[in-house]
Simulated assay, not measured.
Amino acid sequence: MSRRRDAELTNIEERLGYIFEDRQLLDRALTHSSAQASYSNERLEFLGDRVLGIVVAEYLFQEPERHNEGDMAARLNHFVRGEACAKIAKNIRLSDGMRSRAHDQDGVLADSILADAMEAVLAAVFLDGGMGEARHVVLRLWSDLLAQEPESFKDPKSRLQEYSQSVGLGLPHYQLEGSDGPDHAPQFHVVVSLDGAENARGSGTSKRDAERQAAKAMLEKLNAGLL
């Protein structure tokens, strides 16, 4: 391993708060398939998704019993979804250690790539140090998200549907307007409409994410009294 690569991994370890015994695990977790298909982080990503899920589920289960099963499921989904993983990856500047040829024209990695890498890193910690170390890393990095109040993590589509029905606007209708961008980092564009209301639009790295962003934009308009 080169000195430069060694320094990159050291910086990532400091931000994670965990020192690896086997640095090859971290190196692989930070390698996207576009850089080296036979040595990519895809299998680690699969495991890391499960590690993150069980740590957060355990955390929610151990909280005081003020949330029912449905609330816990909604919170779990919010804390482990791709947007959350990408946000954490950005917080610790995980891209500084990424090996990838999938950057956009501005040299930026797509959120989906960052999210996958974050999950892969959690798997690497789990394999290197066990569940205890993985739990420590997750709870430290996710601490701000885990402290969020219920309304802040409810899915925007659910919030919009609940609100629109409560005021007689009917059900929101989502329509895909199109997509663009490279194959490895597509952007989807969705418009949401309500009876008697101005349309709102959103974009994201998946159709589902674009729908959430459109719903969020509609809620912001409704809250601001612009419709």
Rank of each mutant, 00 (worst) to 15 (best):
D104Y: 11
P186N: 00
G225I: 04
A57E: 15
D27N: 10
G170I: 13
R135E: 15
Y59G: 12
K90S: 04
R208Y: 02
R212V: 04
H32K: 04
N199V: 08
Q36H: 15
R50W: 10
Q213S: 06
Y174A: 00
R28L: 13
G170V: 03
S193C: 08
L9A: 01
K90M: 14
Q161I: 06
F46V: 13
G225A: 14
L109F: 08
Y39D: 13
D144Y: 05
R66D: 14
N77T: 12
V138C: 07
P150G: 02
H32Y: 13
L226A: 11
L44I: 05
A185Q: 01
H184C: 11
Q165W: 06
A215M: 10
A35V: 02
E13Y: 06
E42V: 13
A74E: 12
S100C: 14
E42I: 12
Q36E: 11
L76R: 09
R140M: 13
V108L: 10
G204L: 10
V191T: 06
K221T: 08
R50L: 15
D6N: 04
V125P: 13
S40I: 01
G97A: 07
G48I: 02
H67R: 14
P156W: 08
D96I: 10
M218D: 10
R66P: 06
Y163N: 00
S40E: 09
G82N: 04
P150M: 01
R135N: 08
E45L: 04
H136W: 06
S206G: 08
D49C: 02
Q213F: 09
P64S: 05
E177N: 15
H189A: 12
G48E: 02
I113K: 09
L109G: 00
R159N: 05
E211D: 10
H67A: 15
F126Q: 03
M118R: 00
L9V: 13
A86N: 02
S152L: 11
A217D: 11
A110P: 08
M131S: 08
K157C: 15
E8Y: 05
D180R: 12
E13M: 13
E151D: 14
A197C: 14
A197F: 12
A89I: 01
F188R: 07
S158A: 15
G48Q: 00
H173W: 13
V121C: 04
L9N: 00
N91I: 01
I92L: 15
L227V: 01
D6I: 05
S40F: 00
V51Q: 09
S164R: 08
L227M: 13
E162G: 06
F79M: 12
I92W: 04
S33L: 05
P186S: 00
G82M: 12
L219R: 02
L122M: 15
G170C: 05
D111Y: 02
Q213N: 14
G225T: 03
A224C: 09
N68D: 15
G202V: 10
S193T: 14
H32W: 06
Q24C: 07
G129A: 11
S100R: 00
